[in-house]
């Protein structure tokens, strides 16, 4: 069981969350070309090792999170809200 430290809810089992995908993907503008969208939607680095990825606390606070996790060992290095504004709010609270 991976344990994810949700910045809003605390440490929880990964079964409360759903895995999103590679968080390093920058989705292009809606009017970008099909080639740019093809790259973002279909192509993956597929890192073996530490990767930055999204998780959704779907059975919790419903927040999307950015997680640095090793895809070999499942070790998590960091968790932060995907929304930068919320990340900032948490910073201010500290």
């Amino acid at each position: 069981m991976i344990r994810i430290k949700c910045p809003f809810c605390g440490e929880r089992d990964h079964s409360e969350f759903t895995y999103g995908g590679d968080a390093s993907i920058v989705y292009p503008a809606l009017d970008a070309t099909a080639e740019e969208w093809h790259e973002a939607v279909f192509m993956r680095e597929n890192i073996r090792g530490m990767q930055t990825e999204t998780w959704h606390h779907v059975n919790g606070c419903r927040m999307w999170l950015i997680v640095q996790r090793d895809t070999m060992t499942h070790e998590i290095r960091s968790v932060r809200p995907a929304h930068e504004g919320l990340a900032g709010v948490l910073e201010d609270d500290r």
Partner: peptide
């Protein structure tokens, strides 16, 4: 619902 949340929290902050 998940899709809308993803869009708002990740792509279109």
């Amino acid at each position: 619902m998940v899709w809308l949340e993803e869009l708002l929290q990740t792509r279109w902050q």
